[in-house]
């Protein structure tokens, strides 16, 4: 019997199908989230990859921002629990998990004895330090989000971005560009700005290494390096970093089945 985890975020939809033995049979990431065709497309892709039909799934758990409105799951679980479960499955040594999602950032402290969430903090009312912030800045710089890391690697110096607010930061970036600052240097400043916001949040929880980063922003090496500098510790990237929430959901569905 297969189990399915689906993570419907604000910016992307993710699905993971697990076999009986816990191995991944199919997985998919679609870059549009709740309120779009993303969840259905992610499911179609994951089912096609696994070579199974929806009837073959014994239990489904949904997580993420769109978890409450999505119909079709047996139950819904918060993304904080699911990310912790997904990361610990592959990296049981993790003690602090940072998830940078489309519109929020979560820092999770893991209990080393129980292997589960001990404490967490989330950003509040402000998208600074999230994936959406990077999307806005990429648009101003005329770059694709996927290419940000590569461009920032060519930076010679960091042009500091002092505004916290996404809207004001956008104006500040435009003014730097109009003064002739190089795009890679401004981008390095943007990455540093994200890292400072995230580090500020994580410091409320306390940094306990090993620190593991999940979410789409984890694919951006520029942010990872800036965050390592701010937190003064090595950051490990979760395997299939965008899929840890969906994986955690699928694992919890598997545990549910074992209790039935």
């Amino acid at each position: 019997m297969y189990t399915l985890g689906i993570d419907i975020g604000s910016a992307s939809s993710k699905a993971v199908i697990l076999r009986d033995d816990g191995e991944v049979a199919g997985q998919a990431v679609i870059p549009v989230g709740t309120g779009t065709t993303g969840p259905e497309r992610a499911l179609r892709e994951a089912f096609a990859q696994a070579g199974i039909a929806p009837e073959d799934v014994g239990r489904t758990i949904v997580t993420g921002y769109g978890r409450v409105t999505w119909q079709g799951a047996d139950r819904q679980v918060s993304e904080i629990t699911c990310h912790a479960r997904g990361v610990l499955h592959r990296m049981p040594e993790a003690r602090t998990i940072i998830d940078i999602g489309g519109q929020d950032v979560k820092a999770i402290e893991v209990d080393p004895d129980r292997g589960f969430v001990r404490n967490f903090v989330m950003n509040d009312k402000c998208a600074a330090g999230t994936g959406r912030f990077l999307e806005v800045m990429a648009r101003v710089l005329g770059l694709e989000v996927e290419g940000l890391a590569e461009v920032s690697e060519t930076s010679a110096r960091t042009v500091s971005i002092s505004s916290i607010c996404t809207v004001f930061a956008e104006s500040e970036v435009i003014s730097h560009l109009s003064r002739g600052e190089a795009v890679p240097d401004v981008l390095a400043g943007i990455h540093q700005s994200v890292a400072k916001r995230v580090a500020g949040l994580v410091s409320r929880l306390g940094v306990r290494p090993p620190v593991v980063l999940t979410g789409g922003v984890a694919k951006n090496r520029g942010v990872v390096r800036a965050l390592e500098k701010e937190l003064k510790t090595e950051i490990r990237i979760a395997h299939s970093c965008q899929l840890t929430g969906a994986l955690g959901a699928a694992l919890l569905a598997r545990e549910d089945l074992s209790k039935i």
């Binding site: 679980v77 993304e79 001990r118």
Partner: peptide
């Protein structure tokens, strides 16, 4: 365990839902 939730009369409940649910699961 302690959950800190900032409240105001016209707050959005979406983030509060995630925090309360995560706390309940924790």
């Amino acid at each position: 365990p302690v959950l800190h939730l900032e409240v105001e009369p016209r707050m959005s409940l979406e983030q509060a839902r995630t925090r309360l649910q995560s706390f309940a699961e924790m």
